[in-house]
Nucleic acid binder design. Structure first.
Lengths: 220, 220
DNA sequence: ACATTATTAGAGTGAATACTCTAAAGGTCA
DNA sequence: TGACCTTTAGAGTATTCACTCTAATAATGT
């Protein structure tokens, strides 16, 4: 792999594991066994590394939120949307973790992220509209708007919530379960809008996703 | 005012305005016109300042979430809960802004915050139960649990969302309106569970709170 | 008045950190 | 081979920051 790509990948991993604040450019370089000079040959500064990682993420999400044009949405689509989005959220979790700071120090990034947010919100709305067209949910436009916004906030805040409020180590198994719990919480948000024929089947489908959450919250 | 209290107050303000990461102990001292030595006479380190500010916040919220024992809950209680909680969130907004980092560097704070979170969640549940007893909302226990959790996440993430996703300056007027928009979003979460006699009156009551949000999101 | 304690000033320090600079090494193509 | 461009090493630097140390000053009690 090219040095530049190795830097991006290593940075992403280190940022995710330790938080952007705790990872210096020297750390990244020595982690890769290269010199700081080398790193700065490929990137103007730390911000640019972050910016390039962000571009990767943005591109991925833009693809993942596409609505199929050749067929109506089915309920399983919704589950898949959530699964891939949550996976992406996990793979780039440092971005949302330190988002406020990252946007504060980089005006270009802030503007770009803002456009991204609006695009996402529009896509989320399209998805919900599609589900309404398929008679899976029933809601007014206004309800869909606030539902979409709440979904966005919840989704982008989920790992932050997990990390701060649940004393969970970053071991894979428990984290993965709590990722599923995030999906469950989103379904809880939508549940009241499901049409009669879908309410119970969907509830049953996602029921088990929420169990791990109950354990963590009530026991400790 | 005692020097110690002045340090706490100034720190809180500076942290809120600039983020904990961007405010050094030397900044705090020079902002108050005192020496660093003086600051460190009153506080062991920066963490302890943060910890003490947190204690203030925790105490305040614990009081605000009390459920009245001598009377049933009415719908206006819910609005007041949200208003005081959001105001507190604003007054201590740096806490949630940098929460992940603050908890990472201070294990005691993390444990304490965890207990606090569980206490809050229980209180939120009590409030929703009270509203159910008053026939204002209708929902199963499980629905109340996930509703309560979603409320918590939404409330604690609201200012972060505002700051990152809406290009809003910290001028008072617009921020205050968007604080109200946060309240509107919470009501949107609860709306499906309102009983028939409350659904329309409540919707009308909070309708105007959401308008500013529509403007910000759709226009820019 | 005097001893004792609480508070404050302010210079200073060691560690960290983002980034620079120079020169060397490697690759490519005539 | 040799000229030229790309990539890399690694020592170094300027700055920042949390925190320390010593000594001076105020406050308090007897």
């Amino acid at each position: 792999m090219k040095t530049r790509d190795r830097i991006i990948q290593a940075s992403k991993e280190l940022f995710n594991e330790q938080g952007e604040r705790n990872v210096t450019t020297n750390h990244i370089a020595s982690h890769l066994g290269i010199s700081p000079g080398n790193l700065y040959y490929h990137f103007k500064n730390k911000q640019q590394i972050i910016f390039d990682i962000y571009l990767e993420y943005e591109k991925q999400v833009d693809q993942q939120l596409q609505v199929p044009l050749d067929r109506p949405l089915i309920i399983n689509d919704k589950l898949i949307y959530l699964q891939v989005i949550f996976q992406g959220l996990w793979d780039y979790r440092f971005l949302h973790r330190d988002l406020q700071h990252l946007l504060d120090i980089d005006e270009d990034l802030h503007k770009r992220y803002n456009d991204f947010f609006k695009r996402c919100l529009a896509q989320v709305h399209s998805i919900y509209s599609g589900l309404r067209d398929s008679k899976i949910i029933d809601a007014t436009d206004q309800e869909l708007r606030s539902l979409g916004l709440n979904t966005w906030i919840l989704v982008t805040s989920w790992f932050g919530f997990m990390h701060t409020n649940l004393l969970v180590e970053e071991g894979q198994e428990e984290s993965r379960e709590l990722l599923n719990a995030g999906i469950y919480q989103i379904f809880a948000l939508e549940r009241p809008f499901l049409t009669d024929e879908y309410r119970d089947p969907v509830s049953n489908m996602v029921f088990k996703l929420g169990e791990s959450l109950d354990n963590v919250i009530s026991l400790k």
